[in-house]
Amino acid sequence: MDKILFLAHTEADGTLPKAAYEALTAAKNLAGDLQGATLVAGLIGADVAQVADTLTGIERVLGVSGPEFAVSRYSSDVAAAAALVSTSDATIIVAPATPRFCRALPGAAARLDGRIETQVTAISAEGDAVEAERWFYRQRIVAKFSRSQRPWFLLTSPGAFEPASAEAGKATLEAVSVDLPAKLRTKVTGIEAATTEAQTIRPDADILLVAGAGWNKKQKDGATHVNDASSLVLGFLELARASLGSTKSLVDQGAEGAEVMSFMSHLNQVGQTGSTPRHRKGLATCCHGEEPHVVGWRFVSERRAINLDETCGWAQGKADVLYVADAFEVMAKVNELLAADA
C-alpha cells in the first residue's frame, strides 16, 4: 500500500509556485487511481501555515518552517525533505521539479536509500503499480517505467500537468522538526540578473521566438547586419512580450568571435544542449537543423517558422506553417504592425 507525499516549497513571497499546484494535481490523481493509497502533504518554507490552507482536499499537512527554510539551500532542504518523508512514512513522493527541489531531493533520496526521477511528464497507476513517464537523451526518447524500490521521488516537469486550484480551506498543519547542523556552511545572498542587458527569457510568455544562426549571416548584399537583427529581435520581444530562445549555432558564434547579438547568452539556448521551454506558441526564424536542435521546441504547441529554405529541417514536418521569406523583411513588418496596435 503506497503512501503518497505531496512535497512543495514556498517562494520568497510565501506562496507556492505554480509548478507546486501542478504537482498537486499529479499527486491527487495518483492517490485517486492507486488502490489503497493515502495522500499527505509536506511543505517547506519560512512560514507554511497560510499555504497549507490552499491545499484543498488534503487532510494532513506536515510542515517544516523557520527562517533557515526561507531560502533555497541544499543542506537545510535535504534535511527538511528527509524529515517529512520519514515522518509521513511516505513511499511515493510527488514534488515539482523546481531548481530548488532538483538540487535537494536527489540527495534526500540517497539519504533515505530511495530512488528519484526528475522532469516527469506523466504518472499513472496500473493496479497497485506506479508508472512514471519521462524523457531521456535530451527530449529525444520518451519512456515509461515502474520501480519496486521505495521511497520513490517523482519530480513533475513544470507545465506537464494542469495546476490544481488553490482554494481557501482549513488543513491541520503538523509541524515537523528538523535537526540541522549547528552551523550551516552555505549562505544564500540573493538573486542576480544573468546579464546587464535586456531581460530576454520569460518563462511565462505566451510565445517563444527562436532565433537561428541565419540572423548573423551574410545577407543578400553580401554583408552581415547584426545590429539590424538585434533591434528586430529585441523589438519583437518587447512588442509581443515574447521569450527568446536561440539555436546552438547562433550562441556559438559568440565564441567564434563573430559580431553577435549582445543580449544573447548560453541561457537562451534551446535544444539538444540547451533548454526545452514550454510555451503555447513558437516562432522560429532563420533556423536550420534537424532532430537534435528541434527538440528545443518539443513542448511548444503551435509552431511557425520563417526561413528562406523551403526544405528546412526545423520546419518541414515540425512546424504548422512555414513562411518561405526573408526574416529581416517579415519581422520588420511584424514589429511595425504590433507597434501600430500597441
Binding site: E256, E290, D309
Partner: peptide, 25 residues
C-alpha cells in the same frame, strides 16, 4: 520527389546523414 526518408534535400543529407559540424576557434 523528396520523401524525407531516402530522398532528402541536400542540406538535410548534411544534417541527417553527415551530421556536419564546424567547431569554433
Amino acid at each position: 520527389p523528396f520523401d524525407g526518408e531516402l530522398l532528402v534535400s541536400h542540406q538535410d543529407a548534411l544534417l541527417l546523414g553527415g551530421k556536419v559540424q564546424a567547431p569554433p576557434g
